[in-house]
Simulated assay, not measured.
Amino acid sequence: MDAGPTSAARARFHFAGGRGERGELPPNNWRAMFGGPARTRIREADGHPGQWYLHLFTPHQPDFNWRHPGVADYFDDVLRFWLDRGVDGFRIDVAVGLYKHPDLPDSPDPTADEDARDAINPQAWNQPEVHGVWRRWRAICDTYSARDGRERTLVGEVAVPTPADQAEYLRHDELHQAFYFPLLHTPWDAAAFRARIDAALRDIASTGAPVTWGLNNHDQQRTPTRYSRRALPGEEADPERGAARARAAALLMLALPGSAYLYQGEELGGFIEQQ
């Protein structure tokens, strides 16, 4: 790598020296969502092992350091580039993961994030400073909307523990919408569906933002497969039953107040996947 350890280029990411006698151990115990340590060590320009950089997903996706002012300025330019070309808005991946704890300390759960997505590293996600990013992006979008009266929309992938947590991202000066993921994990049970729908209407719709419903996405098997599995003791997986339940769930979602997002193929009757 040409940019050295104290360079301005590295400051835009999360580089740090390693632990151990020769820096041979990662700077913290964080795990990557796709497996393995969330730190990768580079080789310096002279060929010797150097610093470690942070990546919450793959080593090919180093995380930006949003505490560096140049990072926010860079993304402002990215937004304006596309807004100047007439886009209607942005779908924001991992909207809770921009900022990390300023000290990047060890996670209290050394297995958090890796594969088992229910275990979340609290040092890496949902930091309070991230809301400032969405206020900044909302202000940029609103400036364009004020010019021509055409609203630009920010839709976030906001995976947080509760609907009340998600509502904090949907305040009047932040995101317009955030995908409501609990339905993707709801078993085929009427009471379970009702509880999660009621929670969304109570905690999210009360902000004035629409609940953004979805039953499928790229991280989950589709509803025909999920619903085809046995739901009761002794009940075997049944593809026909899975397809029927998928159609019924889609009808339910489309009848709910708010915005419904159909994952690619659903609008074509994409209820055929069976794995």
Rank of each mutant, 00 (worst) to 15 (best):
M1Q: 05
A3Y: 11
A3L: 09
A8P: 04
A11G: 15
G17P: 10
G17K: 11
G18E: 11
G18C: 13
R19I: 06
E21L: 14
P27H: 11
W30Q: 12
R31H: 11
R31V: 09
A32W: 06
G36M: 14
R39M: 11
R41A: 10
I42T: 10
I42C: 07
R43P: 02
D46H: 04
W52R: 05
W52F: 12
L54P: 03
P59G: 04
H60M: 05
Q61H: 09
P62A: 02
D63K: 00
W66H: 00
H68L: 00
P69M: 09
G70M: 02
A72D: 00
D73K: 06
F75G: 01
D76C: 01
R80A: 01
F81I: 09
D84I: 11
G89F: 03
I92S: 08
I92T: 08
I92R: 08
I92W: 08
D93T: 11
D93S: 11
V94D: 09
A95S: 14
A95D: 10
A95W: 07
L98P: 08
H101T: 08
H101A: 13
S107F: 02
P110E: 02
A112M: 02
R117P: 00
D118L: 02
I120C: 05
I120P: 01
N121K: 02
N121L: 03
P122I: 08
A124I: 13
A124H: 13
N126G: 02
G132M: 06
W134V: 06
W134H: 12
R135M: 06
W137S: 04
R138A: 14
I140P: 05
C141G: 04
D142P: 10
S145D: 15
A146R: 12
R147F: 07
D148Y: 05
G149E: 05
G149C: 07
R152W: 07
L154A: 11
V155S: 15
V160K: 05
E168T: 14
L170K: 15
A178W: 10
F179G: 15
P182Y: 11
D189N: 12
I204L: 09
I204W: 08
I204G: 09
A205P: 05
G208K: 07
G214P: 00
N216T: 10
D219L: 08
Q221T: 10
Q221A: 13
T223S: 15
P224Y: 07
R226E: 10
Y227T: 14
P233W: 02
G234Q: 13
E236T: 13
A244I: 04
R245Y: 09
A249F: 11
L251T: 07
M253I: 04
S259R: 13
S259A: 10
A260I: 03
Y261H: 06
L262M: 00
Y263L: 07
E266C: 00
E266T: 02
E267A: 01
L268P: 00
L268Q: 06
L268N: 03
L268M: 05
G270Q: 01
G270H: 01
F271Q: 01
